[in-house]
Design a protein around this nucleic acid. Sequence first.
DNA 1: AAACTCCCCTGATCGC
DNA 2: TGCGATCAGGGGAGTT
Length: 282
Amino acid sequence: MPELPEVEHVVRTLRQLLCGDEILDVRVQRAPLIRPMTVAAFRAGVRGRRVEDVRRRAKFILIDLAGGRTILAHLRMTGGFVFAEPAVEPPENSRVVFYLKSGYKLGFTDTRNLGTMKLVRAKELGRLKELQPLGIEPLEPEFTPERLSELLGGSRRSIKEFLLDQTKIAGVGNIYAAEALHRAGISPRRRAATVAKSRERRAALHQSIVETLREAVEIQQTGIPLHLDLLGENIPNGYGPRTEEVFRVYDREGQPCDTCGAPIRRIKQGGRSTYFCARCQR
DNA sequence: AAACTCCCCTGATCGC
DNA sequence: TGCGATCAGGGGAGTT
């Protein structure tokens, strides 16, 4: 369920918490998570290594370790990290727990067991089947209206399905695709190619994608984090709005559109729900 | 290449 | 109330 903004928040927080610390040991409660790697190999590969950086690529979390190894993690639908103070135990249901030299612990929880974690060599990152196909980062400067237009090209797909394609724009998921399209006033059913043809529409979509994601990152930073729990007395946690309280259309079927008052509609596209306002999105 | 289908897994909710 | 069907914000593999 986490999309780019939620993953970005997890990454920024973990970067502060983990960098410079060392992984003393790891307990893998659920082996399939790190498949096809064996637990023994994973353990041997991370033990004694210092965390040098934590980064994001699309919805992937990269934890760079000393010695040219990187933990590549994906939260999928229900994954999340839990960072616990020395005196506090991470949740029982943690699939993986890292024990750090500082005494802190990092747990990985995942109700649906769809999340993944693997250890790779840093120099292989660019060729990984997970990372290689990924498209442009929408919050990087190279994402411009012109670039968006090129990507949209002559695609006959709906613009909503296009936005979910990680090989085009990386990191946008079902929620923020709907939110960005509402903000841009573009119907999710419109063909991608027709957005590319209109200077006005492609500019509006570009701006709405960037603004929607930027604002969502800010809310994650100041609000209640959805995919990262910090356990302990001395760790500041976020307060403020819940992310879902600021959605304009997502999961708001039947409620009035903030812009025009028409009821928000829900349709199916590519097997997934799309929420939109049929009056102000054209 | 794009567009299908099916699959992975668990829990909450829906509809009869 | 009970119970099967459906759905959930993720990606991947295989097919046409």
